[in-house]
Design a protein around this nucleic acid. Structure first.
Lengths: 155, 155
DNA sequence: GTCAAAATCACTCAAAAGTATGAAGGAAAA
DNA sequence: TTTTCCTTCATACTTTTGAGTGATTTTGAC
């Protein structure tokens, strides 16, 4: 939720508050309720503002987020001596998500399987794939995997 | 959050409400506030219950799901030597030509490029590819390359 | 608050990969 | 001499991948 939206919410709340106080004034001036049913009136106010508070809180609170599960097969002797080359990743300009895709791709999964594993659509995986090939300057996924392993940007 | 906990929250809220109404009654009985500052009193009630509502909502609302990245590491034994494992090749029943294809394939060449390099037709490469996948028990060329490297049947 | 990059997804078209089946010649083995 | 396996290739069909374009939303930095 954006800051602007939050402010709007607060504004609506303030407005409700103001309107209610005006209403209160009016009622007070006309001696309609207060003379004998004050407790009920205050109870109504309480309930109303409780609901308003709940609504406010639900609106203001940041919802979400989702879980990302990446299964990683690790072979005992191979990755021991090789560390991920962070500088190379930076140099190539690979984003986090692209690295995610690249890692799962290197396990031999299809785009559809990658999509399922990363909780995105097939189209998204394709988009990431394409930009990976572009950044790695390769033509195919097999080359991308080969080069990525060679440059130690994936395990 | 558990159901019991929620009930406790609701109970606390109800109790606060009741206490406040009692307080209200008492104030009403003693004519302390209402005669001339009713609006301020109601305003205070409103604010109080707004806060209560917010508190209630925050307590009751299901806790935010945090971004959870689980890297499930599967350790797999692997022969320490990095030489071509001839026995594995035999065990899998891979033929010479299939190994040829597999090796070129692992460099990231397309089937057409492989065909050109081995002086055979595209269809032949496809046939070899298919039987490679069958013998390696994989579904795609990326998996075949990955497995072949893991089993040291190619460099 | 603005701006740029990153991430998301859709849609289309083309190319590549993969499946299935059949077939023919050759070499090695039974 | 059959039989079997390897190699080669074809045709037909399906699936996957990749290129290109465009759009929206989120995020983060300034």
């Amino acid at each position: 939720m954006q800051l602007i939206t939050k402010r709007k919410e607060i504004f609506i709340y303030g407005l409700s508050m103001a309107l209610l106080l005006v209403l209160l004034k009016w009622l007070e001036a006309h001696f309609i309720i207060f003379n004998y049913r004050l407790d009920i009136f205050v109870g109504a106010i309480a309930i109303l503002f409780t609901v308003l508070g709940i609504w406010l809180a639900l609106k203001l609170v940041k919802p979400k987020v989702e879980t990302l599960i990446i299964e990683k097969e690790v072979y005992i002797d191979q990755p021991a001596n090789k560390e991920i080359n962070q500088k190379e990743i930076e140099r190539l300009g690979l984003s986090k998500r692209e690295l995610d895709v690249l890692n799962v791709m290197a396990r031999g999964l299809s785009n559809e399987e990658i999509a399922g594993k990363l909780f995105v659509s097939l189209n998204t995986v394709k988009t990431h794939s394409s930009s990976i090939y572009l950044k790695l300057d390769v033509k195919r996924r097999t080359q991308a995997i080969e080069k990525a392993k060679r440059l130690n940007i994936i395990a």
